[in-house]
Design a binder for these strands. Structure first.
Lengths: 233, 233
DNA sequence: ATAGGTTTTAAACGGCTCTTTGAATTTCAA
DNA sequence: TTGAAATTCAAAGAGCCGTTTAAAACCTAT
């Protein structure tokens, strides 16, 4: 491996760290190059600027998330819809363990959902995020066939965002006063709990779902009521 | 009203905007003072610095969220647990409408959950956020009496984070290609859907909950299984 | 070994950041 | 009205930002 490739790789690696910690704007090229133990001008020489470096990190992120995916085009339809949800949740929870790997990428995307950078906008405009397609595919199996596009969008966003709070609250969980140990057992349980809750939540959106509680009669079964209840503005 | 109070109020108001848009670090005193049409030094004169201004904004935020709360100590226990969840969800969804009001505060807290500022850490260390207390109180009504503290924490975080994705994705929803109209009807429906899903999700955590779906036999009722399944590390 | 291209380095540039300063202005009470 | 206090203002200070530059060091192939 050429020496230039080593610094290039070091830059990508530490840039991922810093971008995950502070977001694109909050990250400084000085901090990145310092951690990578390379000269400050290295980013501009190897990548052409901070933005291009970030673009490459985003590219690696989607690639890594695709590789780590438990679901592909085939399995997503060959398993039960409940199992699909559980797999979808699990593939997002497990990165909490491997801290040096995919967890950083999820944090970068968390920054982008809060305040999208122009780089990110360009990025998703060109290549779609597979995670969104997966979520939509799964959601469609729960919603009625004639569900409105808005219903699907809302449910899709909802599903994709079920795990990210725990990515974001990683520090809250692992540090005092909670000091939870984020080990394999914890991850397993978290995946199981979240999967179960997600299945239950999506099931009430389905016309097939039974009444979910006996102690609240106002919870009538829903039949794609979205459009019926809109205000007539 | 004294003139000094007018600029002070203008600073607080526009600071809330900028902090909500860009977070604490991303916000600049130049931008705030420019929007407030006051001198750049005004923040330091009236508040003593950017940090103190932010502290005051946070103070106003928790106060406003408390005022806008549909739940207080009394009602949270006087209604059914399902109704409590729905009210909790609704009180967070409605700010999506009143853009100039509470929505900004929720966005500020969204920034803080992603990367807490020292100011925020100090802040919550002194006075607890009522929303967390509410969520925990509600969650406890769903979990078994002997539930582990970790289970409660996880479920509490989960409940508080059910709405924020939609606060964050406000632009995604309202702008092309979706271009959803965020009107009263939409908010009502969103609150209803999220409320129903949240109740369903929390119900499966309860020993009282019935089986929620017939097509997946692996979904057995759960009995506070968290501790039983932990790895023996 | 040497020439030629690649990579690294230190320094500087221009622009933005928050804060400080001291004078000019406005406000308000005597 | 006058004088002291409160407030506003323009300017400058000190520091970090991303980027550019040109010289130095390094590799590699002849």
């Amino acid at each position: 491996m050429k020496i230039a490739d080593i610094t290039r790789q070091a830059l990508l690696d530490h840039a991922t760290d810093v971008f995950a910690e502070s977001g694109f704007e909050g990250a400084s090229v000085r901090e990145i190059t310092r951690r990578a133990s390379v000269n400050q001008a290295a980013i501009n020489y190897h990548f052409g600027g901070k933005e291009s470096l970030y673009r490459d990190v985003l590219r690696l992120a989607v690639a890594a998330l695709s590789d780590a995916s438990l679901l592909d085009e085939n399995t997503i339809d060959s398993v039960s819809r409940d199992e699909a949800v559980r797999l979808f949740i699990r593939q997002q929870v497990t990165p909490l363990l491997k801290h040096g790997q995919i967890g950083r990428y999820l944090r970068i995307f968390a920054w982008e959902t809060l305040a999208p950078t122009p780089v990110y906008r360009d990025f998703i405009a060109s290549e779609r995020l597979p995670i969104m397609d997966q979520a939509e595919k799964i959601v469609r199996r729960f919603l009625p066939a004639g569900a409105a596009g808005e219903d699907i969008t809302i449910a899709t966003i909802w599903l994709t965002q079920q795990v990210t709070p725990f990515i974001r609250h990683y520090d809250t969980l692992s540090k005092p006063p909670l000091s939870l140990k984020i080990d394999k057992g914890f991850i397993e349980q978290l995946a199981a709990d979240l999967g179960r809750m997600a299945v239950a939540a999506l099931s009430v959106r389905s016309t097939l779902s039974p009444d979910i509680t006996a102690q609240d009669s106002s919870l009538l079964p829903v039949h794609n009521s979205r459009n019926m209840q809109r205000s007539k503005t």
